[in-house]
C-alpha cells in the first residue's frame, strides 16, 4: 500500500521535475529541478531495496555532479534567459516518442523473460551493502579498477581543461579594463 503511494508520488514528481529541466529557459531553474529529481530517483532505489545504490546516487549525483554543475555555472552567465531557436515542439515530441518506441521494440522484442536467470542472486538476511560489496570486489573487480583509473583521468582532464588561462576573465566586457585601471591606481598610491 505505502509502496504504491510512494511509487506514484515519486514517479509523478520526477516526471514533472524532469519536464521542467528539459523545458525551462532558465539555467538555474533547470539545474535545481534536475537536482530535486535526482533526489526523488534515489527514493525509487530505496523502494526497490537497492539501499547502497540510493546512497551512491545521493552522494555522487546530488552531491558531486550537481555541485560541479553549479560551480561551472559561475563561469557562464546564468541569470540571463537562454534564447534558443527551437525546432517545432510537435515535431520534437513525435520524433522523441517514435525513437523511444523503436528502442523499446528493439530491446524488448527478442527477450523471453522466463529464460532470464539470476547470475548473482541476492541473499536472504544479508544487507544490500554487503551483497553489493561481495559481488563488486569479486566478479566486477577489474571493471571497478578500470572505472577508478577512468575517474582519475577525467579528474586530471577536468583540471587541465578548466584551469587553462584561469587568470583571464570570461566575460569580455569593459568592466575588466576598469578593474585593471583601479588596480593601477592602487599601485600608484
Amino acid at each position: 500500500m505505502y509502496e504504491a503511494i510512494a511509487f506514484y508520488l515519486f514517479s509523478a514528481l520526477t516526471i514533472g521535475l524532469f519536464l521542467i529541466t528539459v523545458m525551462s529557459k532558465n539555467v538555474l531553474y533547470a539545474m535545481t529541478s534536475l537536482a530535486a529529481g535526482m533526489v526523488l530517483i534515489s527514493g525509487f532505489f530505496f523502494i526497490l531495496g537497492a539501499d547502497f545504490l540510493g546512497v551512491v546516487q545521493l552522494i555522487v549525483y546530488v552531491g558531486a555532479v550537481m555541485a560541479l554543475y553549479s560551480f561551472a555555472m559561475m563561469f557562464f552567465d546564468a541569470t540571463r534567459d537562454i534564447k534558443e531557436k527551437n525546432t517545432p515542439a510537435a515535431l520534437v515530441f513525435l520524433l522523441g516518442g517514435l525513437s523511444a518506441l523503436v528502442l523499446v521494440l528493439i530491446f524488448a522484442g527478442p527477450i523471453h523473460s522466463d529464460a532470464i536467470q539470476a547470475l548473482y542472486p541476492m541473499h536472504e538476511g544479508v544487507g544490500n551493502a554487503q551483497d553489493v560489496g561481495i559481488v563488486l570486489f569479486t566478479k566486477y573487480l577489474v571493471p571497478f579498477e578500470v572505472a577508478a583509473v577512468m575517474l582519475l583521468v577525467a579528474m586530471i582532464a577536468g583540471i587541465i581543461l578548466a584551469g587553462k588561462k584561469m587568470d583571464q576573465s570570461l566575460t569580455k566586457d569593459t568592466s575588466v579594463d576598469d578593474a585593471d585601471e583601479i588596480l593601477k591606481q592602487k599601485d600608484a598610491k
Binding site: A50, L53, V56, A64, L68, L119, P121, M122, M150, L151
Partner: peptide, 22 residues
Amino acid sequence: NDLTGQMFAFFIIAIAASEVAV
C-alpha cells in the same frame, strides 16, 4: 532478484561523473 543490474547502475554513475568532469 539479481545484483547485476545494480552493478551496471554503479558503473553508469561512475561514467556519468567522469563525463560531467571532462
